[in-house]
Nucleic acid binder design. Sequence first.
DNA 1: AGCGTTTTTTGATGTAGGTCAATGCACAGC
DNA 2: GCTGTGCATTGACCTACATCAAAAAACGCT
Lengths: 188, 188
Amino acid sequence: MFNQLKGLLKYITDFDEQQLTEITKHFKPKSVKKNALLLSQGQVCTEFYFIEKGCIRTYFIDKEGNEKTRYVMCNPSIGTALTSFISKKPSFEFIEALEDTELLVISHADFYKLNNQITQWKVFYQRVLEMAYSFQNKKIEGLVTLTAKQRYDLLLKENPALIQRLSNKILASYLDVRQETLSRLKSK
Amino acid sequence: MFNQLKGLLKYITDFDEQQLTEITKHFKPKSVKKNALLLSQGQVCTEFYFIEKGCIRTYFIDKEGNEKTRYVMCNPSIGTALTSFISKKPSFEFIEALEDTELLVISHADFYKLNNQITQWKVFYQRVLEMAYSFQNKKIEGLVTLTAKQRYDLLLKENPALIQRLSNKILASYLDVRQETLSRLKSK
DNA sequence: AGCGTTTTTTGATGTAGGTCAATGCACAGC
DNA sequence: GCTGTGCATTGACCTACATCAAAAAACGCT
C-alpha cells in the first residue's frame, strides 16, 4: 500500500527501510471527489499530501474574482498549501481535487514530530523546501521573460501530459492567461 | 564585530551564545565596491552572505538583454543566489553590489558542515528556505494580480526606504516594468 | 436519450504597458 | 571646472493580451 510513497520518499532522501516504515505509519488514506476542496481560503492548512492517484491543485482568487492556479500535483507526487502549512496562518490558497483522487495524508503535528524522531526527515523537509523554492523561481522567470505563447510552448515541451490532463480553464489559470487567449494559442 | 550578525541569527532561530560563537567563527569579512559582481552567470554560488552595511541584489538577463532583479538585500540581512547555492549548479543569476558594501561570508562547505555540527542550524536553514519561499510566493501573487502601478504603490507602502535607496533603473527591473513606465508611474 | 450547465471557440474592441526616439540631467573621472 | 557616459523624463506610437459578447461543443445528471 505504501510502496509508491516509499519510492518517492527514497527518491528525495535516502531513508533506510526501517525509517520508511516509521514514516509511512503516520500517513492515513483519504479519498476526494473531483472538484472537492481539501482546503478553503481562510483555513489553516494542517495536512501534507501524497497523491497516489488523481490530481489536485492549489489556487487563489484575486480581487476581480479570477482564479489563479499556483501549482498542480498529479500522481505520484507530494505537496500542500505550503505557505499556510509553514506559518500555521490562515491560507490564502484553496486546495482542490481536479479528478477523483486517492491521497495519503500526514498531519502537520506528525510531520514536525518526525523532525525530531528521524534526523533524515529534516533533510527531507529541506529538499521539499528547496524544490518548492526552485519551482517558484522558475515560475517567476517565466512570468517576467516569456510571452503567453512561449509559456505554453515551454509547458508543452516539459510536461505535455499536463496539458492533456487539465481543462483549458485550469490550464489557462496556471499559465496566467485568459482561457480565450489560451484557446487561440492552441490553434496556432 | 559579529554582534549584528548574531542578532539576526538569534531573531531567526533561538541559538544560545555558545552556538552563536561557534557559528560566527565561520564568517569572514569581505568588502565590495559599488557595481562589483559577487557572482556571475555561469559560476556556481559557493557563498552565503550577511550584509553588514550596504546593499546587494540578485538579477539575471533575459534573451532580449533586459535585466530582471529578483531580490534586493539591504543591511542588515542575509541571502545569496539560492538556487545555485542549493543545487551547486552554475547560476543563472548574478549577484551585484548596489553600493559600497561590507559583508560577512560563510562558504557553502562550512554552511553545510554546520548542518551536522549544530542541530539548530538545520532549523535555521529551514527558516531561511521558508522565508525565501514565502517571498517568492508573494512576488508571484503580485505579478499575476496587480498592475504596475499597484505593485509600485504596494512597495511604497511596505518598504518606502527601498524606493528611496534604489535607482529608478534597478527599481524598475525589480518591479518588472520598464524604467520609462516607472518614471511615469512616479509622477502620478 | 435529453436537457441544463459549463467549457471552448471565435470575433470585435479596448488598454496597459512596451518600444523607439529625443532631450535633459547628474555625477564620476581627469 | 569641463566632459563624457549613463540615467531620468517625456512624447508618439505599437502590440500582446484582456475584455465583452455570442455561438458552438462537451459534459454530467436524471
